[in-house]
């Protein structure tokens, strides 16, 4: 009996390590190309394209960090502040709402779920949103413009609801009600600790979403001091595509294009920290233990 168990585990591990290893490698290689490219010589990259190993060696692409420390630091500050604030606000709102929608004894939960879900199907488009943000809420060049849109992501809401329903046994709520707790107390003191893993997961998704977002900056922010990292990168990447259009214009286009290597180094700089978030958080993804709460 023992021999059979060991063999199946070994076979499984070999297969799974091979498959996952292959997928991970395929995911890793382009990223290595970006890193190599960013420390390569610009002329080599233009001539021969990207490659796994750096072509020539040059830190020119990273010079801008030395030359403009202020704007990069500023962008980091903005991005970090926005991401953190948004995560806290979003997790609170999403978990609280998801809890309400999960409660089977809340008769209108399906109606409200539909009310929330409906917003993902029909969208008024850019025009009314822009008018609302700029003319009515007066959020132009305001850091809130980077936080408030997309704060309540209905997908995350529904996933969280499903997570709560999969993790929290109903008996806990019943026993708490018998003890006289009100709904908010149950949510705050009992539910939240139980769904830590869910909070971390959605928190990670929120972090990634906010970190990567440049659209809100493009629409609402003109003040350079409020530019988040991804928007700075986005503008750089746009320059190439825009440059060619100057053919049709009679003004000339002046500034030299950001080099290929510069685009790559900017990618590393803007992406770097958030990639570390996932490995950092992995230790919190522990096997959930909720059974004890009820039995006790």
């Amino acid at each position: 009996m023992n021999k059979i168990k060991a063999v199946d585990k070994i076979v499984f591990n070999v297969i799974s390590k091979a498959v996952i290893g292959f997928i991970s490698l395929v995911c890793l290689i382009p990223f290595i190309m970006v890193i190599s490219g960013s420390i390569s010589e610009e002329s080599e990259i233009l001539r021969n394209g990207y490659s796994l190993l750096p072509r020539g060696f040059s830190l020119d692409a990273y010079q801008f960090i030395v030359q403009n420390p202020r704007s990069i630091l500023n962008a980091y500050g903005v991005t970090i502040f926005v991401t953190f604030t948004a995560i806290v606000m979003a997790l609170f709102l999403i978990s609280m709402t998801a809890y309400v929608l999960y409660r089977k004894d809340f008769k209108y939960r399906n109606t409200f779920s539909f009310i929330f879900y409906f917003t993902t199907i029909f969208n008024g488009g850019l025009l009314p949103t822009y008018i609302m943000m700029v003319s009515y809420l007066h959020l132009k060049d305001n850091i809130l413009a980077l936080i408030l849109p997309n704060l309540i992501n209905v997908f995350f809401l529904l996933v969280m609801r499903s997570f709560i329903s999969g993790t929290v046994p109903e008996s806990i709520i019943e026993s708490a009600k018998i003890d006289g707790a009100n709904d908010f107390y149950i949510y705050w003191k009992i539910i939240l600790p139980l769904i830590k893993v869910g909070l971390i997961t959605i928190g990670l998704f929120e972090a990634v979403g906010y970190w990567n977002n440049w659209v809100n900056a493009m629409l609402y922010i003109n003040d350079k001091r409020l530019y988040p990292l991804q928007y700075v990168l986005y503008q750089l990447l746009q320059s190439t595509q825009a440059y060619a259009q100057s053919m049709a214009d009679t003004g000339g286009s002046g500034v030299q294009l950001p080099s290929e290597t510069f685009k790559l180094s900017m990618t590393i700089v803007t992406t770097g920290p958030i990639i570390l978030a996932y490995p950092f958080l992995q230790r919190y993804f522990v096997q959930g233990v909720t059974i004890g709460a009820v039995k006790g």
């Binding site: 630091l73 500023n74 500050g77 001091r225």
Partner: peptide, 10 residues
């Protein structure tokens, strides 16, 4: 702390 830092920077 981060909020204060960001405010100061901006």
């Amino acid at each position: 702390v981060i909020a204060a830092l960001a405010c100061a920077l901006s």
